Simulated assay, not measured.
Amino acid sequence: METEHEPVRFDSRIAVLLRADLARWQRLNVTAFLVSGLGTRIPEVIGEPYTDADDTAYLPMFRQPVLVFEGTKEVLTAAHTRAVGRELPVAVFTSDLFATGNDRDNRAAVRAVRRADLDLVGMAVYGPRNAVDKVLKGARMHP
């Protein structure tokens, strides 16, 4: 029997992997963009709306933690290959997106480059914990 005070355990994992050489503002920007796509395609990652004691309504958020990792360009490329190979939901952010200013241009920038040639600076992945852990092999928790 589950109680309100027992820790909640998740069989799935939401993870962001960032290239270690990004500037601080880039890390924050890339993370925000990457996780924004997960709730639209995977509704079960979204929890219930929040309210405060005055009944002010707030938007729902992810129902579980988002783990943020970092790695070299090579680690990121390998993780992307593994995630795509496992058919896990993946969001990508390439270096080209720093020069664009809207969704249309972002999508065009990614579309213009073959998968093997993407200059990835970040990715988000969702899936079973063990599968995501294998995808992230070689990455380390973001400091």
Results as ranks from 00 to 15, higher is better:
M1T: 15
M1E: 14
M1S: 15
E2R: 08
T3H: 10
E4A: 09
E4L: 14
E6H: 10
P7G: 05
V8Y: 06
R9V: 08
F10Y: 15
D11I: 06
D11V: 04
R13H: 03
I14A: 05
V16Q: 14
L18H: 12
R19A: 00
A20R: 11
A20Q: 15
L22A: 04
A23M: 11
R24I: 05
W25Q: 04
L28N: 07
V30M: 05
V30P: 07
T31H: 11
A32H: 12
A32V: 11
G37M: 13
G37R: 13
G39A: 03
R41W: 03
E44T: 14
I46S: 01
E48N: 07
Y50H: 04
T51S: 15
D52R: 12
A53E: 15
D54T: 03
L59H: 08
P60S: 10
M61H: 03
M61S: 10
R63E: 06
Q64T: 04
P65N: 08
P65G: 01
V66K: 03
G71H: 03
E74K: 04
V75G: 09
V75C: 10
T77H: 13
A83K: 12
A83M: 06
G85V: 06
V90H: 15
A91Q: 07
A91R: 09
V92H: 06
D96C: 00
A99Q: 12
A99H: 12
T100Q: 02
G101V: 01
D105F: 00
N106Q: 13
R107Q: 12
A112T: 08
V113L: 11
R115M: 01
G122K: 02
M123A: 09
Y126K: 00
G127Y: 08
P128I: 10
N130T: 04
A131T: 08
V132C: 06
K134N: 12
K134E: 14
V135Y: 07
V135T: 09
R140F: 00
R140L: 02
H142A: 09
